[in-house]
Design a protein around this nucleic acid. Structure first.
Length: 621
RNA sequence: GGGCAUGUGGCGCAACUUGGACAGCGCAUCGGGCUUCGGACCCGAGGGUUGCGGGUUCAAAUCCCGUCAUGCCCGCCA
């Protein structure tokens, strides 16, 4: 069911080492972890796996590391999986038996197909991934897009490790920003002349300026109060406006092949009185208090580490304001307790909007829907959220830790903001609008598609819309996902529209070329004698790279880093290009069958990994 | 003032979490490959005191201390 060739080899090497060490150097006092960590992939010409344990042993026992290595290598029992174990500069280098290893990798891919790479680390556990949670009064800009792409990729990665995944989007339909938009909608303009979210976002910038007028400000604040009370006409108008905007935002999401399972509305958290329960828990655990004097008089304030003197502190954290209105973090806290099952699911759900791809259904919390089992109550809650909110998130984590005694995990996957040259993408001041093109996810996609069409034309390909779109998506997604999340990105159109080099289209091209070769072979077969025609060159390097795919998938999940997938994908793609250049497949005679099998394995691995990154592999581009 | 993140050839990044053999890749530059299975490709060359200074270690881009630079956060906003 699962296959992890490299991990198996690593484990076998580990047990060989352990055996030898327990025979000769049991007194060195090594942890099994030390030995495991000493194993690294072999460098060029130094075998396939290497261990540096001898240094460690030599150190504690005051011996010569090279002697230790030789003794260890000498006393390791021989196995058929390793063809050679040698010592070089005190490193113990193990070479795989090429034929055996190649067979294991290739037959694994042939057998598992689309499931090659899948691991079982998350079996029986559920994870909720929250992304991108854009305020419902503006379009997704490229910063939100980064969030969404990360969230989508993380979700796929977790699924590839057999976790049950619920993809969630939190809609913050309360608060000042939406009150401003609603006020504008009622008093300034309600006739959109373009896509609704874009129009509303532009209007928000204009109305925001009017807030400098104190009469307007007062009216908006009045409106805000009414919105926050469930059941008022204003709250219903507000929800309607927000839903209209969210529907427009989801057109963007669908265009990017991004989908969710659940939409959770902040106003529903209030209506369902989940907040009361959450605050109740804080009170039970004695984590909050109400100062009787000072700056925070009559507020419900969180007791931070320096408990007892919060009322003197400048930066105490308010949970409920003196006027009784909860702050954002209060609602987020309640939401998170729901995510990890500390507050039972009492939402009603209804189906939201048009159907998503592949018949997936998007449920939305709502007043009128019905109870549906299966939402919330996860073992791990992953929150994809901008680095600017790290401090807030650590307070949130502190609250959850204090309120819960379960082993459930809340992960804050923080990513660096996306800036544009000389500015930020502020929603309030309209930084996202740009000078000529807006920095929205929509315009990035349409610009990229027309760029791809141009390239296709140059190369004499048809320029089909569907293909151009998927290639453009591959470029955009790969570009964002190959950089570590914590790094900030400075966006420029030149860079964004340059698809050369380490790019999504390069990987797509690999997939298409491999597909072309393999397309006429209905059934891949591999016989024992075919293995003789694997050389010690690029063909074997390719096999090794393919063999490392399952480990990459596992690592990506452990570290919540899609980069690991992107790197492996590039690795295989680059090796395949070299292979393609130097080792003919269809024209080969004796080697034809192995090379076909290798090519098929490339296609399968690359395809599987592209899908994990949210990219659709195409056989023709 | 406190906190978080980042700093790697001209540019964009990888390797840092778990210290291991010569710091990888792409762009740009220069020089090659008559498009044989798809040239959105491949091969070669030049280009690095991994911000700086200490320390730990057989071994440091990686760990520790200090320091500098840049960005962000620190509201009864969300």
């Amino acid at each position: 069911m699962y296959n992890n060739p490299l991990k198996d080899m690593r484990q076998e090497f580990l047990s060989l080492l352990e055996g030898a060490i327990s025979k000769g150097y049991a007194n060195a006092g090594l942890d099994p972890g030390d030995i495991e960590n000493s194993i690294v992939p072999g460098r060029q010409g130094h075998g396939d796996l290497s261990s540096s344990v001898s240094f460690r042993i030599a150190k504690t026992l005051k011996l010569n590391p090279n002697d230790v290595a030789n003794t260890l290598a000498g006393s390791m029992r021989s196995t058929k999986r390793f063809s050679k174990i040698s010592v070089e500069s005190a490193y113990i280098n193990a070479s795989f038996d090429r034929k055996l290893y190649a067979k294991k990798v290739i037959t694994g891919v042939l057998r598992l197909g689309d499931k090659y790479g899948v691991g079982d680390a998350g079996k029986g556990r559920k994870v909720i991934v929250e992304f991108p949670s854009v305020n419902p009064n503006k379009p997704w800009h490229i910063g939100h897009l980064r969030n969404a792409l990360l969230g989508d990729a993380i979700s796929n990665i977790m699924e590839s490790n057999s976790f049950r995944v619920e993809r969630e989007d939190y809609i913050d339909d309360l608060g000042l920003q939406i009150a401003v938009s609603l006020w504008g909608y009622k008093n300034v303009d309600s006739n959109p002349d373009t896509k609704f979210d874009t129009w509303l976002g532009q209007q928000y910038v204009i109305v925001n300026k009017r807030m400098e007028n104190s009469d307007v400000k007062r009216e908006v604040e009045e409106l805000l109060k009414r919105i926050e009370i469930s059941g008022t006409p204003e709250s219903m108008e507000n929800r309607k406006l927000a839903e209209k905007c969210v529907r427009a935002q989801y057109q963007t999401a669908y265009n990017y092949n991004i989908w969710h399972d659940t939409l959770v509305w902040e106003s529903d958290i209030i209506r369902e009185r989940m907040l009361d329960r959450a605050v109740g828990i804080l009170k039970e655990r004695d984590m909050v208090h109400v100062p009787i004097a000072g700056k925070y008089r009559d507020c419900l304030v969180l007791k931070l580490e320096g408990a007892g003197r919060d009322e003197d502190e400048e930066n105490a954290k308010v949970i409920i304001r003196s006027n009784g209105v909860p702050t954002y973090i209060a609602k987020d806290f309640a939401f998170h307790l729901w995510k990890i099952g500390m507050i039972p699911d009492q939402f009603n759900y209804s189906v939201f909007g048009e159907e998503q791809a592949e018949g997936r259904v998007l449920y939305s919390t709502s007043e009128k829907g019905k109870m549906i089992k299966g939402h919330g109550d996860a073992d791990i809650a992953v929150n994809i959220i901008g680095a600017a909110q790290s401090q807030q998130q650590s307070i949130l984590k502190y609250m959850i830790k204090g309120a819960s005694n379960s082993k459930k995990e809340v992960i804050h996957l923080s990513y660096g903001e996306v800036d544009v040259e000389g500015g930020s993408l502020s929603g309030r001041t309209g930084g996202w609008i740009g000078e000529q093109k807006s920095y929205t996810a929509d315009s990035l996609l349409s610009e990229s598609v027309s760029r791809v069409k141009g390239i296709m034309k140059e190369k004499g390909h048809g320029g089909e819309e569907r293909i151009a779109k998927e290639v453009a998506l591959s470029a955009i997604k790969f570009e964002f996902l190959k950089v570590s999340p914590e790094k900030k990105i400075v966006f420029s159109w030149d860079k964004a529209l340059d698809f050369s080099g380490n790019s999504g289209p390069y990987c797509m091209y690999t997939y298409a070329r491999a597909s072309k070769i393999v397309e006429k072979e209905r059934r891949m077969k591999l016989e024992e004698k075919d293995l003789d025609y694997i050389s010690d060159g690029i063909d074997y390097d390719l096999i090794k790279a393919i063999g490392s795919v399952p480990e990459a998938v596992e690592k990506a999940a452990n570290e919540y880093r899609p980069t690991v997938i992107a790197d492996t994908l590039l690795d295989i793609s680059m090796l395949f290009s070299k292979f393609y250049e130097t080792m003919p497949v269809l024209k080969a005679e004796k080697e034809r069958r192995v090379r076909l099998a290798i090519t098929y394995s490339v296609k399968q691995s690359v395809g599987n990994m592209l899908k994990i990154l949210g990219i659709t592999p195409l056989e023709t581009i």
